[in-house]
Computed example of a mutant assay.
Amino acid sequence: MATRTLALLGAEVLRIDPPEPAELGWQHLEGGPGKRSALLDLGREADAARLRALLEGADVVVLGYRPAALGRLGLDPDDLTARYQGLVVAQLSAWGTEGAARERGGFDSLVQAQSGIALVEGGPDAPGALPAQALDHATGYLLAASVTTALEHRAVRGGSWIARMSLRRTAAELLGMPRGLATARRGLDDARRSALAMTLVGEAGSQRLAVPAIASPMGPVRWRAPARPWGADRAEWAS
């Protein structure tokens, strides 16, 4: 969500995945508008060297692995900002970067359950859930905003910058917001639903998805390109 938002705003985004396991097809397409997609096995020195070369030319790197895994891959945020002057590092995790929980795996639904959202949204007999993966989406937009802010700071003050976000922190923020009738779920009629959707067609097929949540008459309201097939591109900058 963060990097597809940055792609919407004009960034050249290259997503890097390991060859195994393969990403879920629909999930890749959902997060892929505006990006290119390449595969690198960082256990191979040639691929690790290719990533280092990419970092030499990067303004921003967005990381989604647990802290210990980042260290094993040579992607510790503090090391990266020391090695690549001017780099902005955006680190996303499920549970944050401090305490024992930081090394636990997690995703939106698990964090909704652990944080108490499932209890708040549920009934007397069963847990509930938000009507969307709100932690993924909200955290992604917040992380994109943090990246643009860090780039602005870099332009004025120089240096390297680190932005850190977690799904658990976003859950805490949502739980702290007022609740009441104004926040009750409301359905959409067909006309409104159609106005909030768009279709992208490319090599990966036809994709129907929600329009970006950020839009302005003075800025972009559509992605420049549809999602590319998973792993279809070379691991190099296009420009």
Rank of each mutant, 00 (worst) to 15 (best):
V88F: 00
S115L: 11
D125M: 08
A69C: 06
L119A: 15
P127I: 03
A90G: 08
L73D: 00
E121H: 13
T81C: 04
V89W: 04
A101V: 15
E98R: 14
V62H: 07
S109L: 15
G74V: 02
F107C: 05
Q114M: 10
R104A: 14
A126Y: 05
Q91K: 13
P131Q: 03
G122M: 01
D78E: 15
A69F: 04
G128E: 02
V120T: 12
G128S: 03
Q114F: 11
A134C: 13
Q85W: 03
S115G: 10
R66C: 05
L87Y: 00
P124Y: 01
L70G: 04
A82I: 03
D78H: 09
T81L: 04
A82W: 01
P124R: 08
D125I: 03
V120S: 09
G99W: 11
G128R: 01
L92Y: 15
V111A: 09
V62E: 12
Q114H: 14
L92V: 15
R72M: 05
E98D: 13
Q114D: 14
D125S: 06
G128H: 04
V111Q: 14
G64E: 05
Q133E: 15
V60T: 01
Y84S: 00
R66W: 08
V89M: 06
P131R: 06
L75Q: 07
D79M: 11
P67T: 09
G116M: 08
V120P: 05
G123P: 00
F107Q: 14
A101L: 15
A118N: 09
V88M: 00
G71I: 01
P127Q: 01
R102W: 12
E98W: 11
L63M: 13
D125A: 10
D108P: 13
A132K: 09
P77L: 03
D125W: 02
S93K: 06
G74H: 02
G96Q: 11
P124H: 01
P131S: 05
G116R: 06
D78A: 14
A69S: 12
G128T: 02
G122C: 03
L130A: 15
Y65S: 14
D76I: 03
L73Y: 04
L70Q: 07
Q133I: 14
E103P: 03
A82N: 02
G99R: 11
A68H: 10
L110W: 12
